[in-house]
């Protein structure tokens, strides 16, 4: 059993299933309406030599992307304008089954979190775990037990490889 990155962050018997990029891609590709939430931690993050924003924009072709307002500028400079909202605000919307979504087409079936402070992400995943039917996936470097699916605890380079792999698998679908 994987131990959460903050080892005391054991919520109870129900904990996330650890997924590889291959399994994550399979799950995500089968889901209908999906969204990725990107936190302030993506600022300055690179995958190899490329800024992570480039990968996120690639991913936005596959799913809705919502970014933390504090990183919106980076996307605007790249000519993109994703929805920007605080993660607490978005999570609050997500827990409402009646919410129409950012595109007016209804709430989402799965939400992936990336780039948030560990404990903040953990708490937001906990909201959806207990108060919604939405499935969740954590794409950060550290195992998040409150998600339905999470990457394992990874070293920086391992995580970069995982993330890159996930994006390329999703693009191939």
């Amino acid at each position: 059993m994987t131990i959460p990155w903050f080892s005391a962050n054991i919520p109870g018997p129900k904990q996330a299933r650890v997924v590889t990029p291959e399994i994550a891609a399979k799950i995500l590709s089968k889901v209908g309406r999906k969204m990725m939430l990107c936190g302030s931690g993506i600022k300055g993050q690179k995958i190899g030599k490329e800024p992570i924003q480039k990968y996120i924009l690639d991913l936005s072709k596959e799913m809705s992307v919502v970014v933390a307002p504090s990183v919106l500028k980076d996307f605007l400079e790249m000519g993109a304008e994703p929805v920007a909202k605080g993660v607490v605000e978005v999570t609050n919307l997500l827990r409402d089954a009646e919410w129409r979504g950012f595109d007016g087409k209804g709430n989402y079936d799965m939400v992936a979190y990336l780039g948030f402070p560990y404990y903040l992400e953990s708490q937001m995943l906990s909201v959806l775990k207990h108060f919604s039917d939405i499935k969740t996936m954590s794409l950060g470097r550290f195992y998040q037990p409150n998600a339905d699916y999470s990457f394992d605890n990874l070293k920086e380079k391992e995580w970069e490889k995982n993330f890159e792999n996930l994006i390329s698998l999703l693009r191939r679908k």
């Binding site: 919520p11 109870g12 018997p13 129900k14 999570t91 609050n92 708490q123 775990k129 108060f131």
Partner: peptide, 9 residues
């Protein structure tokens, strides 16, 4: 209130 349980127990 939006609740984010720290523990499920």
């Amino acid at each position: 209130p939006m609740y984010a349980p720290l523990c499920d127990l």
